[in-house]
Amino acid sequence: MTDAKYPRSEVKKDKCKGCGLCIAACPKKVLVFSPKLNSKGYHYAEYAGSGCVGCGNCFYSCPEPDAIIVYLRDYDPEKEV
């Protein structure tokens, strides 16, 4: 059950170290550990597919610079440079 609309959180699975801080920080509990392992051997975090409110908690809690992206409500891919 994926909805393409924004807001939406996205984890880059191979950059994730599986620390779980984003999962703990998410007020809507829409981030979960994947049962699968990434290339580094971590159970990476992933977005459940819906329910993100675009609070950005996961982005700011994540210690990795490039493991999480949060597209906010008025994100428009057309306007991206």
């Binding site: 950059k15 170290k17 599986g18 620390c19 971590y42 950005g56 982005f59 700011y60 210690p63 990795e64 610079p65 490039d66 493991a67 999480i68 992206i69 949060v70 597209y71 906010l72 008025d74 994100y75 428009d76 306007k79 991206e80």
Partner: peptide, 28 residues
């Protein structure tokens, strides 16, 4: 409208030794 890796970071961590030039050395 999007929260992503800020521009204050290098695109690629070219001075970091080894193959993983796109993530930090910090512990999880």
């Amino acid at each position: 409208t999007v929260l992503r890796k800020p521009k204050g970071f290098n695109d690629v961590y070219k001075h970091k030794p080894g193959a993983e030039k796109d993530r930090t050395h910090y512990c999880p």
